[in-house]
Design a protein around this nucleic acid. Structure first.
Length: 720
RNA sequence: GCGCCUGUGGCUCAAUGGAUAGAGCAUCGGACUUCGGAUCCGACGGUUGGGGGUUCGAGUCCCUCCAGGCGCACCA
């Protein structure tokens, strides 16, 4: 039973597009950005003036950004309308632009005049082939975007109102026989960020994990501990509980190998003959014979193995509720779980509900009965129960063995039903490695056959394997060859710490340590989250550790430097402390922005907390004292564009159920900001108005960086 | 054999079917007595694995071939 070693958490590949209806899921909620809504309204107005009358917005017709900023602020392709009209897109674009220019001239450039939405004037409408490009009043856009960010603070980029959707996310799902490793780290990060992103999009999220705390693999570490543990405890050895137990899991493997070696020796079998070395260059039939021989050997060894027999007996004892076995099991599980909790805290993983397989492994038999009654499952001659999945284009699967015992998927079937009984959610997302793609396809197909109306809301968020470079092989925790999560975090922490001490911006040792932890975490998280989950990740320690380039620390560095500029500005008396406002996001009384009249997010008896309300908002300058018109350098405009686009990327992330769009966006924003501040000085700007405007822009960048990083569970230090 | 995923500059990756395929690393060359050098700029480097097709438009969708990965248990 080796496969049990690597259960739900390590992965390989994925099929987001393919799996269920989720692939086409698009979030349509409203985000906290009046500029965003302006764009939406503008599109409606523009559409009303189209040379081709349309009832509804044609699929795929949205504003995008022209490839070069000088071409305008918004771009609209004429293709969809050209298709409807059956005329050349360029012709449509020209006519459309002409009509728009007339309207713009008549209405002083203002096509959108809806209360609560900024009236940003259109300065120019041009065409570039089949595209209609719009140039907006730059100062008005700048003002609008900056005010959006100042007003929303930590909520900028989050949904303004909750959706009706309740979604459960299961992630991490570890085995309690070994510590968490790199594969789990990827799983946890995907799960953590997915939950935040869904919450930002307005969903109600229930975080769960399914702990695999029973079974033969658990008994292995128990047996090894029982025999060779000498009563060690985490308290006595000072070792983390999961690491201690993991050592015995490795020890068990070693002992079995030793037993196997001795068995081979006493039976005159030369094990090296089975090695891949020995297999090289052999003919096909020779190999087949060798395979058969190896198989026979393994079978006879297993039958004779004392350790295997003892482990199996232990499993039977456990199932029978034998007190001593249960006591040992409880003790060791608690050790492991307390170790996990420590690592989870460090990463920012948390769960509303922990499911344990020791409690769920018998579930599912009711569903089997139900399926039998419905005729979608069948009992075959030998008594085994099969799910008839062929009608779904899959292979039939066993649900109950001929001896009546259940298998893995039976338990998952029962657990799925239990989850819905417990929470009644609309959607259920499983963050599990791609090697289980087939498993979840089968599971969801069975749920559909059983007629559960919510079956279509189940989705397997799969992700690829994390591999090691070069000769480092695969992650094999059984052999103790995995990259341990805690060790990795420690190593990154130390590297960051060295760098911080060198920089000298953090004074107290506590600060150094706190910030080093943020940076170490930022490094792994950004490294793992910026690649799309379908892909395998080749884990290169050197690259992860790098602090320059497209990395988490680079983003954090930008944030810290903005805070540095602010500190300096205060020190030099260029701005006064009392004109800065640190504000509580979403508070009804807004000291900074005059009447908005906008809803600030709905609170149903305090049940729904908008994502971002826990984040630090500001400080900002009061928008009344900032003249947006002075910002017109191309580098400043680039940054502004990116700030305005942030809600869009959160929406894309929610639609794709992936943090990668946000991660890549943050790296882009960081680079754009770096270019800007390098070229245009803030505090030494030519006049006070420009200084204030640039400072406000920088403070808004800091806010958006914090908001985006928070979705990836990365913290932003004020100095580093 | 069947199924799924991946294939984009030397390396690691981006790019909601849209305009001239973008970053980082590496290499080479520059800037600056630094609002924090964990900096910025530039150069080099691509027939997006090959071939067909759909489309006004394909890295993206379909077919096919090739390569790599992962699955295909009365395991979990």
């Amino acid at each position: 039973m080796s496969g049990a070693a690597i259960l739900r958490s390590i992965g390989s590949l994925a099929v987001r597009r393919e799996s269920t209806k989720f692939g086409v899921f698009r979030f349509r909620g409203v985000f906290v950005s009046r500029f965003d809504r302006y764009r939406d309204e503008l599109l409606s107005s523009v559409l009303a003036l189209a040379p081709v009358p349309v009832e509804t917005r044609p699929e795929g017709l949205t504003f995008s950004r022209p490839p070069r900023p000088e071409m305008g602020d918004l771009a609209l392709p004429a293709f969809p309308l050209a298709k409807i009209a059956g005329r050349p897109p360029k012709e449509i674009a020209d006519q459309w632009a002409e009509a728009l220019r007339t309207a713009v001239a008549e209405r002083n450039g203002v096509l959108v005049s809806t209360p609560g939405i900024p009236a940003i004037a259109i300065e120019q409408v041009t065409t570039a082939g089949p595209y209609v490009n719009f140039t907006l009043d730059g100062a008005a856009v700048t003002r609008s975007v900056l005010e959006d960010i100042v007003t929303a603070g930590g909520c900028y980029g989050s949904a303004e109102n909750p959706t009706e959707s309740r979604v459960m996310v299961e992630y991490s799902s570890p085995n309690t026989n070994k510590p968490l490793h790199l594969g789990h780290v990827r799983n946890n990060l995907i799960g953590i960020s997915l939950c935040s992103i869904l919450e930002a999009a307005g969903d109600t999220v229930i975080r769960t994990t399914l702990v695999n705390d029973r079974g033969i693999h658990i008994c292995k570490s128990m047996l090894a501990y029982q025999r060779w543990g000498n009563g060690e405890t985490p308290t006595a050895t000072g070792e983390k509980g999961d690491h201690l137990v993991g050592r015995y899991y490795v020890l068990y493997d070693q002992k079995v190998k030793e037993e196997r070696r001795q068995f081979a020796e006493s039976h005159g079998v030369d094990l090296s003959r089975f090695s891949s070395e020995a297999r090289k260059g052999k003919a096909k039939d020779e190999l087949a014979a060798l395979d058969k021989e190896a198989e026979q050997f393994e079978a006879s060894f297993e039958a004779a193995s004392e350790l295997t027999a003892a482990t199996q007996k232990m499993l039977l004892d456990w199932e029978a509720g034998e007190p001593e076995t249960l006591a040992l099991w409880r003790t060791m599980n608690e050790w492991v779980l307390s170790g996990f909790r420590e690592t989870y805290d460090r990463m920012g993983a948390r769960f509303d509900r922990w499911y344990f397989e020791s409690e769920t492994y018998k579930l599912g038999k009711d569903e089997v009965d139900r399926g039998l009654r419905m005729g979608v499952f069948e009992k075959r001659a030998d008594g085994a129960v099969w799910a008839k999945l062929e009608q779904k284009g899959l292979q039939d699967k066993v649900l109950l063995r001929s001896d009546g015992t259940s298998v893995y998927i039976t338990q998952d079937l029962g657990t799925a039903v239990r989850k819905h009984e417990d929470y009644g959610m609309d959607r259920s997302i499983y963050v599990v490695g791609s090697e289980q793609i087939a498993h979840f396809k089968n599971l969801f197909a069975m749920l559909e056959l059983l007629g559960h109306p919510w079956a279509g809301g189940c989705y397997h968020a799969s992700y690829g394997l994390v591999t090691l470079p070069r000769g480092m092989g695969k992650l094999k925790s059984r052999e103790g060859k995995a990259v341990d999560a805690d060790d990795l975090f420690d190593e990154l922490h130390q590297l960051a710490e060295a760098k911080i001490v060198e920089g000298g911006y953090c004074e107290s040792p506590e600060d150094v340590s706190r910030v080093a932890e943020m940076i170490g975490q930022g490094a792994v998280k950004m490294y793992l989250l910026q690649v799309s989950s379908d892909k395998n990740i080749q884990f290169d320690p050197n690259e992860t550790i790098a602090f320059a380039g497209d990395t988490g620390p680079a983003v954090q560095y930008s944030h810290a430097r903005i805070q540095g500029i602010l500190r300096k500005g205060l020190d030099q008396g260029l701005i006064r402390e009392d004109e800065l406002a640190l504000r509580t996001t979403g508070s009804a009384a807004d000291p900074l922005v005059p009447e908005s009249g906008e809803s600030q997010g709905r609170r149903d008896g305090g049940a729904w907390i908008r994502f971002g309300e826990h984040l630090p908002a500001g400080p900002f300058l009061s928008p009344r004292t900032v003249d947006a018109a002075v910002l017109h350098e191309p580098e400043e405009r680039d940054v502004l564009r990116l700030l305005a686009d942030y809600p869009h990327w959160v929406r894309v992330a929610a639609g794709q159920l992936s943090a990668a769009p946000v991660a890549n966006y943050l790296l882009d924003l960081t680079k754009a900001y770096a270019r800007m501040y390098h070229q245009h000085e803030v505090l030494r700007a030519s006049d006070p108005a420009l200084m204030r405007a640039r400072l406000q822009l920088a403070l808004c960048v800091a806010q958006v960086l914090r908001n985006g990083l928070a979705l990836l569970s990365i913290e932003a230090p004020d100095r580093m």
